[in-house]
Design a protein around this nucleic acid. Sequence first.
DNA 1: CGTCCTATTGAAATTCTTCAACACTCGTGG
DNA 2: CCACGAGTGTTGAAGAATTTCAATAGGACG
Lengths: 253, 253
Amino acid sequence: MTKTMAQTSRVERQDIHNSEVPALCRACEARHRGVCGALKPDQLVKLSKHTSKHAYGSDEELTATGDDVRRYSNILSGVVKLTRLMADGRQQIVGLQFAPDFLGRPFKSRSDVSAEAATDVTLCSFPKSVIEDMIDGSPELGHKLHEQALKELDEARDWLLTLGRKSATEKVASFLYLIASHIDPEHKAKDGPICFELPLKRADIADFLGLTIETVSRQITKLRKAGTIVVEHNRTITVPDLRRLRDCCEVDR
Amino acid sequence: MTKTMAQTSRVERQDIHNSEVPALCRACEARHRGVCGALKPDQLVKLSKHTSKHAYGSDEELTATGDDVRRYSNILSGVVKLTRLMADGRQQIVGLQFAPDFLGRPFKSRSDVSAEAATDVTLCSFPKSVIEDMIDGSPELGHKLHEQALKELDEARDWLLTLGRKSATEKVASFLYLIASHIDPEHKAKDGPICFELPLKRADIADFLGLTIETVSRQITKLRKAGTIVVEHNRTITVPDLRRLRDCCEVDR
DNA sequence: CGTCCTATTGAAATTCTTCAACACTCGTGG
DNA sequence: CCACGAGTGTTGAAGAATTTCAATAGGACG
């Protein structure tokens, strides 16, 4: 069984036993919730020798399309968009990843999606080979990566339904609901008021939803006028009643 | 009904070396290309004790939405559609699986997609627990399942681009191209004439592409009149020049 | 022969896009 | 300090793509 959910107290107790956990990793979110949670202290040490932290600004490219993907990363902060581009410039965001998600495509050196920073992003990255060597010795790590792949698959399939079958309003509502639930997973059930920053600009939202900027804007206006959401400074969204937003994600016809 | 298509002679020759391979598995496609390829003979024996073959007719449900998914399966023949359904009846196919794909969602007992037979289908299925026990002992098996998850993820992301950003004609062309390449992976590069049966009826194609039946029909007519495809009996497609079809998948605007 | 299922086609209605104009914010440099 | 431009977001009107509604046709089967 995986022990991902460790409360702080237990983690601290663990770290007394193996004080060799690299300084870099000690304060790291990914160390507990991310892939590194599956690593033993000596593995962390080994990994940290090849590790580098890096910061990216909004819209900066993290991995070029078709590039050799020689490095894996943990997202330490920020939101990353995975996009696919067509020859004539049409673009589709095929995945959004939040800290402390893992970034990289195991078992394949080329990828036809490119990764861009949606917000300011910091990554902790390391060579592919190091991790791949570790997988063989530690099934828990392989399992964790497998889990993340399955999670991403579930999300991609949810989004297929949204892209294929929902109206523009439903799409925008679904996007806002997605962000709201991701920002505050606890809140999801509670249905109280929620406030959050949109990690994407309108153009990105459009590329995520398969719409135009204008349509996105119009639908946001519509939701705002209906009182389902409150918008400040274009990017700050308040949802007075999450249930009402959720209802907009799937309106009976 | 179930026809074992493997040439018996070759399979028998192989099995001289490991006579413990269960009779059921000897002629099986999945034994080589599917997950079972990662199993050792003694594991196959163990697995085959809990294995049952089953045939389904077109549109029959293999796994109900939200059902406990207690069993895994290999697709021995036919095409399976994975669908998501909305409360008001809107439907989206979120994945197509072909023999000898693996069917089932590891590490999760509920799934919100339902699996239906698109064509006549035969499955070889076994309890989840047996496979999961084996994963611990054989990293190769875990790896194979991981690979399949990643493959499905890549496919889902390809499809997100298609659903989000392509026109109706491009969507239909992309679908036909997908099927053509899947039916005959070798042919993909050659660009000669190809003939195949559509595994999906118009309604399913529509649910796969996020379109209506009528639009699908119109686009097929359009491709037919342009000479890009030849249609017989609604289901039999001939593609004289695969390159030309591929060009229709992404028309510059 | 009639019925069900599947597929096609036409015309009207709807949704979304395209094109165009305008508003707001922010940083830079005159 | 203000003008300017770039980047971002909103809104309106016209146009295009797709859906909806409705009618028709062919094949399979009892």
